[in-house]
C-alpha cells in the first residue's frame, strides 16, 4: 500500500495520511458503485411509463366506441328475440355510450394515478409562458 519513494524514515506497513485518504476515497467510490449496482435491479420507470401510456391511449378510444357497439348489439339481439323493434336497440345503445364513458373514466383514473406516482419528485424550473408562439 505504501507508495513511499521519498520518505525513507517510514517503517514497513505504515500508512501515510495521504495514503489513507486515498484508500478512503477508493472505498467510498466502491460503496457508491455497489449502491448503483444494487439499485439497477429496480426497473427504470421513465421509459416504462411512456410505454404504458401508449398502451392506455390505445385502449381508451376503442373501449369507448366498442362499448356503444356492444350495447347496440345486445339491444339488437334482444329486439330480435323479444320482437320489440327498435326500443331495446336504442336503450342499450344509450347504455353503451354510458359504459363507454365509464370505461374511459376508469382508465383515466388509473392512468392519472400512475402519472402522479411517476411525477412525484419531478420539480424542475419552469419557463414562463410569456412569449408568443405564432
Amino acid at each position: 500500500m505504501t507508495k513511499s519513494a521519498g520518505d525513507k524514515g517510514k517503517r514497513p506497513g505504515e500508512l501515510s495520511s495521504e495514503d489513507r485518504t486515498h484508500l478512503k476515497r477508493r472505498l467510498s467510490g466502491l460503496g457508491e458503485r455497489l449502491g448503483k449496482v444494487r439499485s439497477r435491479d429496480r426497473p427504470a420507470s421513465d421509459e416504462n411509463q411512456r410505454g404504458r401510456g401508449i398502451g392506455y391511449a390505445l385502449r381508451m378510444s376503442l373501449d369507448m366506441v366498442l362499448a356503444v357497439v356492444v350495447g347496440g348489439a345486445i339491444g339488437w339481439f334482444l329486439d330480435r328475440w323479444l320482437g320489440t323493434a327498435p326500443v331495446l336497440l336504442l336503450l342499450f345503445g344509450v347504455l353503451g355510450v354510458a359504459a363507454g364513458f365509464l370505461n374511459v373514466a376508469r382508465t383515466y383514473r388509473e392512468m392519472a394515478a400512475e402519472a402522479r406516482e411517476a411525477s412525484k419528485g419531478h420539480t424542475a424550473k419552469s419557463v414562463p409562458f410569456d412569449d408568443d408562439e405564432d
Binding site: L15, R20, L23, K24, L27, L30, G31, L34
Partner: peptide
C-alpha cells in the same frame, strides 16, 4: 458477489478504522 463485495468493503473500513 455483491454481498461479498459489501462485506470486504466493510472489513476494509474496519481495518482502516482500527489502524487509525
Amino acid at each position: 458477489d455483491l454481498d461479498e463485495a459489501e462485506r470486504l468493503k466493510t472489513e476494509t473500513e474496519k481495518a482502516i478504522a482500527s489502524y487509525e
